[in-house]
């Protein structure tokens, strides 16, 4: 039989359907499409290059293994994110043996969100810093958040999942996603404002 030239489809649904039938190039295409994002997510949650690589491999190996179990009622990427988050949290728990690291950990403890730094930013950070410097600043700020807060922020504001998708991926309630997101956004805003604010600009300027 003549080897027919075929093009690999572009959308996830068609690629997943082919991959389920054992089509290796289709699965490889899905890997190439999402490996950067999954690696970034894993690095941010685990704060470790080594753990992130393990999570990356485990995520795609598990996805391949359980492709038949993928219901298709969520997006393939959301499903991958869910696997990656679980694998990342397992890494955190192993590292901090004896201390449970859970997405339920910080709880909605009634603490008011913190707002101390009230100052406008000095122009646009993208113009003030090289992309390498900026990446380092942003990575450090995220790394300082508690896992439960940074995970919600990453899913909602970096991966741009909806509130409901984030709640489903993390197996927490929609109100919990919302309150953690507010805390995460305000904490990051606080840290970034300390770096990006105009010199000499502070709250007194506005009173």
């Amino acid at each position: 039989m003549e080897a027919a030239e075929r093009s690999i489809p572009n959308d996830d649904v068609a690629l997943v359907a082919l991959a389920r039938q054992g089509d290796s190039p289709a699965f490889s295409q899905l890997v190439t499409r999402y490996d950067r994002k999954i690696y970034r997510l894993a690095r941010h949650i685990t704060n470790s290059d080594e753990d992130a690589e393990d999570v990356l491999q485990e995520t795609f190996l598990k996805a391949f293994e359980h492709l038949d179990g993928f219901q298709g009622n969520s997006k393939f990427y959301t499903w991958l994110v869910r696997i990656a988050v679980n694998e990342s949290l397992m890494k955190l728990r192993k590292r901090k043996s004896g201390r449970t690291v859970s997405l339920d950990e910080p709880a909605e403890n009634g603490d008011e969100p913190i707002v101390r730094e009230i100052a406008v930013w000095d122009g646009s950070p993208e113009q003030q810093y090289s992309s390498e410097e900026l990446r380092s600043i942003l990575d450090k700020a995220i790394a300082n958040l508690k896992p439960a807060f940074r995970t919600v922020f990453l899913l909602r504001d970096v991966e741009e999942l909806s509130t409901e998708e984030t709640a489903a991926a993390l197996e927490i309630s929609v109100p919990a996603v919302k309150s953690r997101l507010l805390r995460a956004r305000l904490e990051l805003r606080e840290r970034l404002t300390r770096i990006f604010k105009k010199k000499g600009d502070d709250v007194f300027a506005y009173l």
């Binding site: 950067r36 900026l134 942003l138 741009e160 970034l192």
Partner: peptide
């Protein structure tokens, strides 16, 4: 600023 960062 976070949304603008492409994954490396």
């Amino acid at each position: 600023v976070y949304r603008g960062m492409d994954p490396q």
